[in-house]
Design a protein around this nucleic acid. Structure first.
Lengths: 231, 231
DNA sequence: TGCTCTATATATAACAC
DNA sequence: TGTGTTATATATAGAGC
């Protein structure tokens, strides 16, 4: 009569399984009851018994109805969200990891862009392997960076001086764009090779870059998308 | 460091309660998991946690969805029927007891009636305390008794001889009613005091007693209610 | 707060009836 | 099958960190 060390696997023997089932069910219900009393919470358990003819057995106390009612009230989706099941836990973890990864990749890309930009600014543009960096993306990044830079600068001086929205006109702030840098740093040929600046209509440009260039060269209107990379 | 003997009552101290909650929740989930593996069953538990911001936590494995789905499929009524909660157990017990009591009271009343009837039949009617027994009820009972008696007698002789329903006419069986007994046993005065026989129309009589008296005196049609006391 | 540790309370496997 | 008994495995209160 020496107790075994619990081999956690299905008990093949029918009568032994039933005996174990009854004992453990009793213990389980007791535990649930204790937990609910000790901690003043609502809890219930549903156990499908293969022995007891009625397909399911219940948990603990009269509050079952409340618990079940509450549980039923939640939509299935919400239940799944809130259930800390092993599966959903793992799923959540995967989602988190993917999200994290995306963030870091984006961050990485930005750092690369920034470095490239500063290399251009410091006159070391000829050392840049532009095959590694998408030229269009780089232009976009530089424009965005300068826009934010100017935005913040002007904001700190006089907030009201800047006008947002599509209707802002002559009062909008002058800011350099990637064009200036390309013109300044690269030979004309290189600039001409970039189709983004030469052949896009204003509408296309706006679509591509998220803000419009006004009729007067070198003026721009910060569009509604300007805040998207605000930190 | 000596473990106390578990005082099963709400733990007032917040941090201690939380610690206990977490420990016991873990143990509970483990137990449910063990039970489901050892006995090859589906089980789940719902615990409403006051600590964990998400209002409920759950038990063990991916089968929760199945368990919950099954559980939800059952109507609420069916669930309650099958739940062996303490409360519903007691409620069922109460219902049973009340039902039993009603049965016995009915049985008692019938025995009293029967006794009274036989006292009348044996000519000891003058000893009856008719204040204890509702005169109307007694008439009803006697009629019913006789009806059944004749019904069974004729049934055993020739079942087809009896015609049920409202349309049965001349073929219906002749049977004595309580009127005969009252007329035979009591002085006219007593019989006259019973308003049920003298002053009710046929329709009213039918409404009152559940069957009709046909135009010819002493003939009756067993109505649809005749089977109601059949044993 | 949340973890580990350890003595003890509890749960329960195996056995007997 | 259900119940009771006992030796042992497991759960956990209380303490420290």
């Amino acid at each position: 009569m020496t107790r075994k060390k619990l081999n956690l696997s299905y008990i093949a023997n029918d009568s032994m399984r039933k005996a174990t089932f009854n004992k453990r069910k009793k213990g389980l219900v007791k535990k649930i009851h204790e937990l609910s009393v000790l901690c003043g919470i609502e809890a219930c358990a549903v156990i499908y018994s293969p022995f007891n003819s009625n397909p399911e057995v219940w948990p603990s106390n009269p509050e079952v109805k409340n618990v079940v009612a509450k549980f039923e009230m939640l939509t299935k989706l919400e239940q799944e969200k809130k259930m800390v099941s092993h599966e959903s836990f793992i799923r959540q973890n995967i989602s988190k990891t993917i999200e994290n990864n995306k963030k870091k990749m984006k961050d990485n890309a930005e750092r690369t862009m920034k470095e490239a930009m500063f290399q251009l600014l410091s006159g070391k543009g000829e050392k840049l392997k532009l095959t590694d960096i998408n030229r269009e993306d780089l232009c976009k990044y530089i424009d965005q960076y300068l826009k934010e830079l100017y935005h913040h600068k002007n904001k700190s001086i006089n907030q009201s001086y800047i006008q947002y929205g599509e209707s802002s006109e002559a009062t909008s702030i002058m800011a350099p764009t990637s064009m200036n840098y390309y013109q300044a740093i690269n030979p004309v040929g290189v600039y001409d090779q970039n189709p983004n600046f030469n052949h896009l209509s204003h509408n296309q440009y706006q679509q591509q870059f998220g803000y419009s260039i006004v009729a007067q060269d070198k003026f721009y209107n910060p569009g509604q998308n300007q805040e998207q990379h605000e930190e």
